[in-house]
Amino acid sequence: MKNIDLNAPKLFDLSGSVAMVTGAGSGIGQRIAIGLAQCGADVALLDRRTDDGLAQTAELIARAGRRSLSISADVTSSKALADAVSQTEAGLGSLNLALNAAGIANANPCENMEEEQYQTLMDINMKGVWLSCQAEARAMIAHGKGGSIVNIASMSGVIVNKGLNQVHYNASKAGVIQMSKSMAMEWVGKGIRVNSISPGYTATPMNTRPEMVHQTKEFEAQTPMGRMANVDEMVGPAVFLLSDAASFCTGVDLLVDGGFCCW
């Protein structure tokens, strides 16, 4: 105990860090991007949305006293992601943190699903995460200082959601979990930690549309804690895994599901 440095930085302090967040224009990605800024990071915001989502995220980050950079990018394009990393480092500094939240969800019975629906979702949810991690890790490896990457998966990568016909979505999220573990082992010697977060049912704009009210009630009834998560509740897990507080954590999939997977 005599060797404890009482003047050491706070474990969850991200001051001096530069983060990239994909899917930063709405939902979980947007809230985590703001949360990283609240903890001291400057944040590059990536999304392909055409609304004002990124502008809203950037405004809140500015109000938190941090810098941001908004980049319109398609995560299924390796060139777009390489360019985004270059813009991030030119505008904010060397990249050392990344949170990949870009993804889509839809449903259809497996026997009726068209190949295009399956492939589009897989391209965004799996290929997009792979390309994002690849571009981010290349920069971190080039600097030689390591870094931390967190990918947003889903509890649907661990269980099959009752009443939802989402074989392609479930498979994509299971793939993100396994891909994150595999990357963690490939890059462990390069000082890059890779982990994933698997949210349970979360009150994002997609899940709180008026036409979803009956499904929302089902989600809440199926969750042991009796409610869906608030997007704010994804910030702490993300900050933990990205920060020095999780310095010995890599290859972890952190379930944030209100106890759902215990049943």
Rank of each mutant, 00 (worst) to 15 (best):
K79T: 14
A58W: 03
T76M: 07
S77H: 04
T57E: 10
A58C: 07
D47P: 10
A82Q: 12
G29E: 09
T22H: 03
L81F: 07
L69P: 09
R48H: 12
A80C: 09
L45Q: 13
G65Y: 11
S15A: 13
D83V: 00
S72V: 15
G27Y: 01
Q30N: 09
D42K: 04
G23V: 03
A80Y: 01
I32L: 01
D52S: 15
A58N: 03
V18Q: 03
S86C: 09
G35E: 00
A82C: 10
G40K: 03
A24D: 08
G16D: 15
Q30T: 00
I61L: 11
A84Y: 06
R49G: 11
R48V: 11
S78A: 15
D47F: 10
E89N: 10
A62I: 06
L46E: 05
R31V: 13
D51H: 09
A64E: 14
R48F: 14
R67C: 10
I71P: 01
R63L: 14
S68G: 10
S78Q: 15
A82D: 15
R67E: 10
Q87D: 14
S15Q: 08
G53F: 11
D42P: 11
S17Q: 13
S78R: 15
A37D: 10
G65M: 10
S72H: 14
A37W: 09
S77L: 06
A82M: 05
T50V: 14
D42H: 13
A58D: 06
R31H: 13
M20S: 06
M20Q: 07
A33H: 04
A90W: 03
I34H: 02
I34Y: 04
L46G: 04
A84S: 15
S15W: 01
G53V: 12
A90R: 13
G40N: 06
S77G: 05
V43Y: 02
D51K: 06
A19H: 08
V21S: 05
A19P: 10
T88C: 12
I61R: 05
C39F: 12
V85N: 03
I28L: 14
A80M: 07
Q87M: 14
L81I: 09
Q56C: 14
R49T: 13
L36G: 04
R49D: 05
E89V: 12
V21W: 04
R67S: 12
A33Y: 03
T76F: 04
S26P: 01
V21A: 08
A55G: 12
R31Y: 09
I32W: 00
